[in-house]
Design a protein around this nucleic acid. Structure first.
Length: 600
RNA sequence: GGUCCCGUAGUUCAAUUGGAUAGAAUAUCAGAUUCCGGUUCUGAGGGUUGGGGGUUCGAGUCCCUCCGGGAUCACCA
């Protein structure tokens, strides 16, 4: 049977409680038992905090630790010795336990992952508007959403990846109008431009012309607000929106054509990023669903209709404001649509949990959304969660579209690949490979750098993105981890050439040295890292775990020979260690959505 | 103004969720190394965790208060 580190920790926890009961006649709750990895400067592997026990023992922390330690050594064969320092009980594990653990890891295809109670998840991410290409913020969104989906799957859940495309509304009409006025029939085919960029250009053009018009009106003495409202261009755009809502056939043809361009453009970016979806919702198809819910809420008396016909929800009792749900003309607002799609998603998937990966500027919106759905009495509303990620800033400051400092996703991706290529050439690592192979590897490294740099940061926090720092080949970077993996692969190829077999197991009597033990212990923590990452919706926990592992492996690799080790049993141990490190790196990189190069 | 989030080495990020002397990377400095001032290795310095108070065996983490930064508060999406 598979023996993993969690099992050992559970066993120790149980035994500590037993010790307390037997020695002092009473014990605290199991969650009061805190185990942690022993710090390097002390002797031992696992450390228990004894403070929770002194109220039962009525002794000093040292005496209590010694009591419990002696009990554990007497009752658990895995524990060889102990020492107590200042209320911390350090336990030394039998080194042969680690040998057995390594063997189980070597033969376990699931790398010791722990399965939780399987639940059905919907994870929504990306959610682009079709009037502009994707930018750096979307990259963070997509990477977090995609990685989170894989992490949840790895812990045994069923995950539906979902994207909602905002393909209707006044912003779309703006780019349509500009294209109709000044486009001269330009298409991605005639201009050679990616569809989403082409449409984005017309959106920008609209905004420029619109601003000019408004400025002119202000110069003629009009109030600025009034000028923005009544400029002919914006009125034309609104007229276009009305025609769209009336299903005017010419308008719809143009709209569909331009949407298709954008769709193709987005798909190319998604492909480059390596993200995908199980279902794509289009707002144009779902935006009317919310009205029915609002009507239902009215019937239930959860909402109120004002004299002008608009419908409101009053959340002042819960510390929020009043919020409009239907305009006085009966049309939907933003939140109405989200009410509808949430309901629709439940009908589609019957989820237990629904995670929205959306930027933290919408915190308030989701608070309101969840409260409204809870008030409506939908039981599934309890499973809704807003994974609110922080903004991405540049070393020069925030991205501002007004100032043209928005980092375009496609530009960034190709820039990362170029930088990777430049650095590799300089280091002379590409000699003797075919061009297509080089391109493939550089793509993997460039994107690996980008993805790792973004995913290693706690999603909730705002972060600064520095392209130069992310592509570095050492330090806490993607390429550094990829490099270590490539070196392990090369080591194994080397072993095969020298007819050194990869062992199926290490002889049970081999005692690992302290660095090897420590590395095995690190490997054993992988399962914990994954389940915590799943519980906290935080891929960064895995990224930071893998970095620690790689650092420790490199140190080990630097200190001890692997293939050059003369003693066969020790050599097998070290090869097994390398194989398992490779396995865990591969698994973790998969969860982060980062590819591994065959060589570097 | 109301609500919410954030503040950790010069910089970018960690800190096992309340645990031991707050750690890495990068930058800087000092040695070593070579064809080189850019490579590699070794080492060092760098912190009152924004300030103050409180809770307890123990606080970067929890509570209060002030300071600073950000988001949001549309019949926009």
């Amino acid at each position: 049977m598979h023996e993993n580190n969690l099992a050992l920790e559970e066993k120790i926890t149980g035994m500590i409680l037993e010790a307390s009961g037997s020695l002092y006649g009473n014990a605290p709750d199991a969650d009061q038992v805190q185990l942690q990895q022993t710090r390097r400067e002390f002797e031992g592997d696992i450390t228990a905090v004894v403070f929770p026990f002194i109220r039962y023992s009525k002794k000093t922390p040292e005496q209590t630790g010694n009591d419990i330690g002696r009990y554990l050594v007497d009752h658990m064969p895995e524990i060889k010795s102990f020492n107590t320092i200042k209320g911390f009980l350090n336990l030394k594990i039998d080194p042969l336990y680690w040998t057995r653990y390594l063997n189980s890891l070597l033969n376990d295809p699931s790398f010791g992952l722990v399965k939780a109670d399987p639940k059905v998840y919907v994870v929504e991410y990306s959610s682009p508007n079709t009037n502009k290409p994707l930018h750096l913020g979307h990259i963070r969104n997509n990477l977090i959403g995609f990685s989170l989906s894989r992490i949840l799957e790895a812990t045994g859940h069923k995950v539906h990846r979902v994207n909602i495309v905002n393909d209707r509304g006044i912003h779309i009409c703006k780019s349509m109008l500009a294209w109709m006025k000044w486009g001269n029939g330009a298409t991605p085919g005639t201009t050679g431009k990616k569809g989403d960029h082409l449409v984005g250009d017309y959106y920008v053009l609209f905004e420029q012309e619109y601003r000019k018009e408004a400025d002119r009106l202000v110069q003629q003495g009009m109030d600025p607000d009034e000028a923005r409202r009544s400029a002919p261009l914006i009125e034309e755009a609104q007229e276009l929106l009305r025609r769209w809502e009336a299903h005017d056939s010419d308008t719809w043809k143009t709209w569909q054509m331009m949407n298709q361009w954008v769709d193709e453009g987005f798909n190319e970016t998604y492909r480059a990023l390596g993200v995908s979806f199980d279902k794509i919702y289009y707002e144009s198809e779902t935006y009317t669903h919310g009205k029915a819910i609002v009507m239902e809420g009215l019937d239930k008396g959860v909402f109120a209709r004002h004299d002008d016909g608009s419908v409101w929800v009053d959340l002042t009792a819960e510390g929020l404001d009043e919020k409009v749900l239907l305009r006085s003309d009966g049309t939907s607002v933003y939140i109405t649509q989200d009410l509808g799609t949430a309901h629709l998603r439940y009908e589609d998937f019957h989820f237990d949990r629904h995670v929205y990966v959306v930027g933290n500027e919408q915190n308030y919106h989701f608070q309101v959304l969840f409260k409204v759905l809870a008030r409506m009495g939908f039981p599934w509303a309890q499973g809704l969660y807003h994974l609110s990620y922080g903004m991405v800033e540049l070393p020069e400051g925030k991205m501002k579209s007004r100032e043209g400092t928005v980092v375009d996703a496609d530009d960034l991706i190709s820039e990362m690949i170029d930088t990777a290529t430049g650095m590799s050439k300089e280091l002379g690592k590409l000699d003797g490979l075919e061009t297509s192979e080089i391109e493939r590897i550089m793509r993997i490294i460039g994107l690996g750098a980008l993805k790792y740099f973004i995913l290693k940061v706690d999603p909730r926090k705002n972060m600064t993105f520095d392209p130069k720092e992310s592509i570095d080949f050492n330090g806490n970077t993607g390429p550094f981890i990829q490099y270590t993996y490539a070196r392990i692969q090369s080591l194994l190829r080397n072993a095969a050439e020298r007819k050194i077999p990869v062992p199926h197991g290490v002889p049970g009597h081999v005692i690992p040295n302290s660095k090897e033990q420590s590395l095995i212990r690190r490997l054993s923590m992988y399962a914990t890292a994954v389940s915590e990452a799943a519980e906290e919706y935080n891929p960064a926990l895995i990224a930071n775990y893998v970095y620690e592992l790689v650092k420790e492996y490199n140190q080990f690799y630097h200190d001890f020979p692997v293939l050059g080790e003369p003693d066969p049993a020790t050599r097998e141990l070290r090869i097994a260690l390398s194989v398992c490190t490779g396995k865990v790196i591969r698994s973790a990189m998969y969860l982060l959505g980062i590819e591994l190069p065959p060589r570097m």
